[in-house]
């Protein structure tokens, strides 16, 4: 795994390496790049105002790193859209983007539609529920793309593996990462185990990559991206940046079960497609979780179908808007 060690050494950053925003903006302008920030939302009125204010002040007004800040909303019934718009973000309802395509519900849907709606050569996705938001969540992710042409996809991670008193602290993936993703990657895509937080919701990607990959609309979107970008462009296309702490609400274990179920569906689809797993029957899409009610145990059944959007380049309206032909980069 020498290659993996090398990749970790060369392609893992800390946000403080990019503190010089003036220099970063100069490099962005020199490379004639445009950058769009996408904040996917669903009922985030408590945190969205602060995110928009911080990014607009620091990365649009002070240092023009971002060319647009867009909120793509799944139909919040709180004041998310009003708050975001009040502080200067461009606000879109996911359902109103590509209206001729029947809409689906899920965060992945918003991320996919952002490729059509936003203008940037680079799109940086940041979750809207981060309470300790800071400009580093954007500049830490876009900087490797600005400085290194070969990097195509930059992922965030938040818990630095540090050696303290001679002991090495385990890298900080979440529970689903450590008991599902990393074991799966170790089995089938060992090089991807170098990505410290494969499920983090913050990443920056070049448009030329985004338009060529599928988008599961639910829990599997991050996993599918990693596998698809890896198989298309190899490990060298990735970089990752330590953004220090990220404060958000922790999910209960049952919710993690649903997440893992969606991710497994995404994974198995790809394993079949790539011929990694030769024989596997079509799977069930009902998640069964056992719960106790008084003294009776019962099964709760939940249908989770991990639907996928095709690569955006296959959508006629997109090719027309961005003047693309479907066979580029193929």
């Amino acid at each position: 795994m020498k290659k993996l060690d090398q990749w970790i050494n060369n392609n893992t950053y800390h946000h403080c390496q990019f503190w010089d925003l003036k220099k970063l903006v100069e490099a962005k302008e020199k490379n004639e790049l445009t950058i769009s920030l996408c904040l996917p939302t669903l009922n985030e009125e408590k945190t969205i105002g602060k995110e928009v204010v911080i990014f607009k002040s620091e990365l649009v007004d002070r240092y023009p790193l971002l060319d647009e800040i867009a909120v793509i909303d799944s139909g919040s019934d709180d004041n998310t859209r009003e708050v975001a718009s009040n502080f200067g973000a461009d606000v879109y309802l996911a359902d109103e983007i590509l209206p001729h395509i029947k809409s689906k519900k899920g965060k992945g849907e918003n991320l996919w539609k952002a490729i059509y709606q936003l203008k940037g050569d680079i799109i940086v996705y940041v979750d809207a529920d981060i309470s300790n938001i800071h400009p580093r969540f954007v500049y830490g992710l876009v900087a490797p793309l600005i400085y290194r042409e070969k990097i195509k996809y930059v992922k965030a991670f938040y818990d630095r593996p540090l050696a303290v008193s001679g002991n090495v602290r385990a890298s900080g993936g979440g529970r689903v990462t450590e008991i599902l993703i990393r074991p799966l990657f170790s089995l089938y895509f060992p090089e991807l185990t170098g990505i410290i937080q494969p499920l983090s919701g913050e990443y920056a990607v070049r448009r030329e990559v985004l338009e060529h990959i599928n988008f599961p609309i639910g829990y599997g979107v991050e996993t599918s991206h990693l596998i698809d970008v890896y198989t298309k462009y190899g490990l060298e296309a990735f970089a990752q940046t330590d953004l220090d702490q990220r404060v958000h609400e922790n999910k209960p274990t049952q919710a993690l079960g649903k997440m893992a179920f969606g991710i497994l569906q995404t994974f198995i689809k790809r394993a079949k497609h790539l011929g990694i797993i030769e024989k596997i029957d079509d799977f069930q899409t009902v998640l069964r979780q056992t719960q106790a009610k008084d003294k009776v145990y019962e099964q709760a059944e939940l249908e989770i179908v991990e639907e996928e959007r095709p690569p955006m380049i296959e959508i006629d309206a997109y090719r027309e808007k961005f003047n693309r032909t479907s066979d580029i980069h193929e």
Binding site: K50, V53, S57, E58, D61, F87, G88
Partner: peptide, 11 residues
Amino acid sequence: LKEILLANLVM
């Protein structure tokens, strides 16, 4: 200068 002011307040 609202955004700059509020960003300063938050940070």
